[in-house]
Design a protein around this nucleic acid. Sequence first.
RNA 1: GGGCGUAUAGCUCAAUGGUAGAGCAGUGGCCUUUUAAGCCAUUUGUUUUGGGUUCGAGUCCCAAUACGCUCACCA
Length: 528
Amino acid sequence: MRLNSQRKKTNQIADTREPMELNELEKVRLQKVQELAEKGISAYPTRSFITTTIKDACAAFEKAEAEGQPSPEVTIAGRMRSLRVMGKLAFTHIEDGSGRIQLFLRINELGDQLQFFKDYFDIGDFIEAAGTVTRTRTGEISLQVTSIRMLSKAISPLPAEKEEVVDGVTIRHTALTDPEIRYRQRYADLVVNPEVRNIFRTRAKIVSALREFLDGHDFLEVETPVLQPIYGGAAAKPFVTHHNQLHQDLYLRISFELYLKRLLVGGLDRVYEIGRDFRNEGVSFKHNPEFTQLEFYCAYFDYLKVMDFTEEMIRFAAEKALGTTKIKYGEIEFDLSQPWRRVNMREGILEKTGIDISKYETSEALEAVMKEKGIKVKPGMQRGKLIDQLVSDFLEPTFLQPTFLYDYPWEISPLAKRKPDDPTTTERFEGYLAGMEICNAFTELNDPIDQETRFIEMGRTYSEEDEEHNPIDEDYLRAMRYGMPPNGGFGMGIDRLTMLFTNKSTIREVLLFPHLRDRDQAQSEEIE
RNA sequence: GGGCGUAUAGCUCAAUGGUAGAGCAGUGGCCUUUUAAGCCAUUUGUUUUGGGUUCGAGUCCCAAUACGCUCACCA
């Protein structure tokens, strides 16, 4: 039922679809496509005959120039990004994935083809040009074009981009700035705003640096199910889906944790996974419904070893992705080559609020003292949640420099091992950079009896309807009963790390296709 | 979900309640070293949508939608 109604909303039936309405500019360009076809020229030919990339063509020219050799003859291709036509000559810049070069078109070399170019070629088109690389009078490396071909005609004009370089600073006179269009039409954003492409190059470098680091420490990269019959490993509401043939409801995973730790039982001592988690919750500048997570588990590590390892890994990622460990995030600067501050949660809260949480063992007692101190509390919160609130109100905002906050109350850490000398506290830490929570780790609970007790306890604290109420994963308990090595586990949001490394204030900037409301759906819902 | 803000030409933006404009892009013309090329001419609008107030609404009011900021939610 649910799926049917969704399908109705989002998919247009193909045979009832009207042809796309084109604006005047698009009609003019479509007309050019048709006129070319009448001449027997395809605006979308099947093959290109390039001999090199733009970057390599420029490099070859500079080498030949330095050695006094003749200029290279090349065939290159790219998207037209600027156009200046003047009578019997024209200049245009084309851009491929490697770079940008100016084309210099003269009637002397091109003859009739110059008029052909002026009649049918527009900014945004992909074109192929053959010729000799030279310098123009102003010294700019340019291709002196002897023949030119259309490779792919752009019907829709790109959002206009005009650039001027003054004293080495690029001034963009008009650009695509509306965030809604930028995210909905990311392809246009990427074409017109080159710095956006760099965000995703950096992101890719971060991910491959993390892989390199973990692979180098003998970790095995694995893949575990995204579709899960039982969700768990985090307190979050899941997305629900359905397998038709099996008549089975399935959840999109909210974490990888329970599957990865099953692998430790199986003898894979060091495992990690980089992949997508899905949480059916609010969207904000640091929350997207699907996000990329790194989790690793390492046998015979405890949370202190994980802390050291985390420092090393994030420093490595910064060096590889940015070439520096010094990060500037807005007004905040920090250096990842330095050890992180380590703050004990009880001591941290005591210092900031004067409340010693170890002296208030029930939620009632803690709530009372918080009220006494003038802290606003929602009535009926559990002790763990109250402590969580103290952390986010009084500690988190102070963690601008790299900080580990450690030793969390057991109530909000059902998968973490208790401290040997204090069963109300677990060996857990979260890492903070620039005030933002970036990772979460603990000495993993491997005692199947304690784990079972905690699952049952957790069940009591949530009502049946509460979607954060995880069903007990009996198979996970069975796995643990076979014996799980002591181990340290770790989870980190790749999107947030990318935000920090690229100095972006919203998660949407570091996601190629961030989740946005569906406009068509809103309209068809009204019709229904 | 709550609060605040924004929505005008393909793009970036103007317009005191009184004929909806500019630059760029487009189209036509001139132009053999330009790079925001230049010069001349010229086209482009359901002012997001639906109501209301008014002689008259892009502008004021109400509602809807989307986006932004923010709060809530978020181990």
